[in-house]
Design a protein around this nucleic acid. Structure first.
Lengths: 239, 239
DNA sequence: CAGCTCATGTGAACGGCTTTTACATGAGGC
DNA sequence: GCCTCATGTAAAAGCCGTTCACATGAGCTG
């Protein structure tokens, strides 16, 4: 993790040696501190110890730097979701819930990435690589939805996986952007964002006819025939 | 709608006469054209025909102007939701769906307001009036959720209205910010945002045990006992 | 090793933005 | 009719994004 040239600190020749990476790192720091709007090209250059003109050797302009960060964000996001999904192990529902938590965790732990990805106001069509990266991340959710849809109880009509994926994504993004980040947009909630999202998804899945019990092999009893102690439903004791 | 002093156009004395309003209007125009980040204090002043320093007589700084817009946005938002809700007429479910469509319509037709309200990155705690306005808008959703919750079928545990409201809000906001605005962040969808959200909410409500039929007085048949023709579910023919 | 080349960094400069300060104007109350 | 004070202006400081001509030196070529 350490560089040949001393962390851009005191002694550094005319050439930085790894400016592009240093700029991306600096930008991440700054965005997480001051938001994507407050972030400054010149600040990033200063933090990397170069002149304000140097970044232009690596990025056409400020927007391209932000787009690079968004793209990298989507890649890490995809990796995080992939790991959480773990190809549906040990069972589809458990893995699915893990994906939801991973979504929120990413938004909370990488607010700089998240806002670059979703709140930077970049023209989405002008950047094919960026859009492709976003598409790949969404593909994970879509794949998970596909597997879930295949599990739909036989009696019910099978829901379109694409629609399910879009629904799940909108719930996750909604919760993450309204309540998810540590500091910003905080409202007093009767429950944590994770609990809120989990309950939301469980209710939604139940609406599609899925069993809401967590045990893998358990055949779900019909909705009106659950044991009395199980009637609490997907929400806790929230008033 | 016309002002004593000719629309800030040609002849205007030393004093503008209605600068504050003109600035808010100009800012709205600019934000809707170039996003809240691209909007410029100086530009708004120019558009109002005054010097760049004049706005400081009416707003402490650029952020306060944006906050004013956000607040005004929440007020119009609240009005739109209130009108859509219409106190639950003609029946709770119909009115509830109207609220969902009103939410999306607002995000689409007033993108400047919407982004000032939700994407400007303002510190929410630093602005009590703004937060209160947001709270009042949310209160409409909450009130609607309350009425819906009261309709929960007797056999089911009654869902907490606050949680329902948060769920509905996160779905609406998720759909609106991911797919809702005319130009930005557009993805190819198999259905319109309105249809997407309506299906999402219907499935969710069904997960809570609500009947998904639209007719007001109709007593819902148990989930497993619907007439065959009704099994299509809340989604259309989406692939 | 000498020499060349080209990617990478520098310094200076332009225009624009935000914000402050001292000053100008004139609308409305006395 | 005069005074006052809210409201506007001009000028200036400091920052930022961006460009351009120029400097540096890493790495190839011989």
């Amino acid at each position: 993790m350490s560089w040949r040239k001393d962390q851009g600190r005191s002694e550094r020749g005319y050439h930085h040696g790894n400016l592009k990476e240093a700029l991306l790192q600096a930008a991440l720091d700054l965005i997480s501190k001051k938001g994507p709007a407050g972030f400054t090209f010149a600040d990033a250059a200063r933090m990397a110890g170069v002149s304000p003109a140097a970044p232009y050797r690596h990025f056409r302009d400020r927007d391209e730097l932000i787009a690079s960060i968004a793209q990298r964000g989507f890649e890490q996001f995809e990796a995080a979701l992939t790991q959480a999904w773990d190809d549906g192990r040990p069972d589809t529902v458990t893995a699915f819930e893990r994906v939801g938590r991973a979504y929120l965790a990413f938004a909370r732990e990488e607010p700089a990435f998240y806002s670059a990805m979703f709140e930077s106001g970049l023209p989405p069509d002008a950047n094919p690589a960026l859009m492709a990266a976003g598409e790949r991340a969404f593909a994970i959710i879509r794949a998970a939805a596909e597997r879930l849809a295949a599990l739909a109880p036989p009696g019910m009509p099978r829901p379109p996986a694409m629609m399910m994926a879009l629904h799940i994504w909108s719930m996750s993004h909604g919760v993450a952007s309204l309540f998810g980040r540590g500091d910003a947009a905080r409202r007093k909630l009767p429950m944590s964002p994770e609990e809120l999202l989990e309950a939301e998804v469980l209710i939604y899945l139940r609406g599609l006819g899925f069993p809401t019990e967590r045990r893998p092999g358990a055949t779900p009893p019909p909705l009106d025939d659950r044991p009395p102690g199980d009637k609490a439903g997907p929400w806790g004791k929230a008033k």
